[in-house]
């Protein structure tokens, strides 16, 4: 596999304010890589560093094997970027805006541009100031995609998009990856990352706290188990089992959290008369909440 993005102890401070600290990550070609974190975690800072829009305090970043500081233009030529927060030119139409960015890049295939406009159901004849938030986001998405970049850096890409357009967007992402492209997607919407990404990195307070395959994160996470007993609930029998925590008894129902193998719980339950046994695989969101706490997934605003 070829590393498309590689960071080495990448660190950014804004004066005394922390941006990111010692970030080490690698994104391989053909991956959809999710970059997940709460507000202010450092997601946008990381993307801006990869594009050399800001310079690192220390550490290095490479995109396509090119040092981001040494030759950012060579990187930009192959990258499509959607900022997390942007406004474009109020007095231009969506079509004029896209034409402008296409001209700045050069070599944009107008047929593909038109196809994207059609797929996202964007009316290019309206002025940017007249667009809703979702339509503004569509203009940004087409601008990022229209030159068929090898790497897409997308900061909160689905903000403001309705579910139908989100589906179109995910389809376009899949096509991009099928053609050998790579996607680096920052988000605080866990379900979006879960559905879209191959791997996910979780960043909090500027530091990378976890990086793994989405599946692995889920597998490594806990199971929520619910047992319904015919008689009294033997809570003590389960509390001392390995990997079991958060044991709560209510009437004839016992709820518990299991990390790792669920076999000891099954074996213990077999000694009692069980009316029902429910084991639910957690969503990534639940994993994230359990691992990093409620405060880590405040979902308003954007990560910086």
């Amino acid at each position: 596999m070829t590393a498309i993005i590689e960071t080495q102890q990448l660190t950014k401070f804004y004066g005394s304010q922390r941006g990111i600290v010692d970030l080490d990550l690698t994104v391989e070609q053909g991956e959809v890589f999710g970059f997940l974190g709460p507000n202010g975690a450092g997601k946008t800072t990381t993307i801006r560093l990869l594009l050399d829009l800001i310079r690192p305090t220390r550490g290095r970043a490479f995109v396509f094997g090119i040092d981001t500081i040494a030759d950012p233009v060579a990187i930009h030529r192959r990258v499509g970027y959607l900022p997390g927060e942007f406004a474009l030119y109020d007095r231009l139409t969506g079509g004029q805006t896209l034409e402008y960015f296409a001209n700045l890049r050069g070599g944009v295939d107008r047929a593909y541009q038109r196809a994207l406009i059609e797929r996202f159901d964007l009316d290019p004849s309206r002025k940017f100031r007249e667009y809703s938030k979702g339509n503004k986001q569509k203009v940004g998405l087409v601008a990022a995609l229209q030159h068929r970049p090898e790497l897409l850096l997308l900061d909160e890409p689905t903000a403001g998009l309705d579910p139908l357009v989100q589906q179109t967007f995910f389809a376009v992402l899949r096509e991009a990856v099928a053609e050998g492209g790579t996607v680096f997607l920052s988000s605080h919407i866990l379900s979006e990352v879960e559905k879209t990404c191959d791997r996910v990195a979780i960043i909090r307070d500027g530091r990378l706290v976890r990086i793994d395959r989405v599946d692995a994160l889920r597998d490594l996470a806990h199971h929520q188990v619910e047992l319904r007993f015919a008689g009294p609930v033997p809570a003590a029998e389960f509390e001392r089992l390995p990997g079991v925590s958060d044991v709560r008894a209510e009437d004839h129902v016992l709820r518990l959290r299991v990390v790792g193998s669920i076999a000891p719980v099954v074996q213990a339950a077999a000694r009692f008369e069980i009316l029902d046994f429910l084991s639910r695989e957690p969503t990534l969101e639940e994993t994230f909440l359990a691992e990093y706490g409620q405060q880590a997934v405040a979902v308003a605003g954007h990560g910086r």
């Binding site: 296409a102 700045l104 944009v108 295939d109 593909y112 797929r119 159901d121 068929r148 096509e175 053609e179």
Partner: peptide, 29 residues
């Protein structure tokens, strides 16, 4: 309105920017 339209062939014609647009319009910064 979602239109199923695959990516255009990479060999599709690419538009060049007319000289006048590079002086006035949207052809350059």
């Amino acid at each position: 309105m979602a239109v199923e339209l695959g990516r255009a062939p990479l060999a599709a014609p690419r538009a060049s920017v007319p000289l006048w647009s590079r002086v006035y319009g949207f052809g350059s910064i």
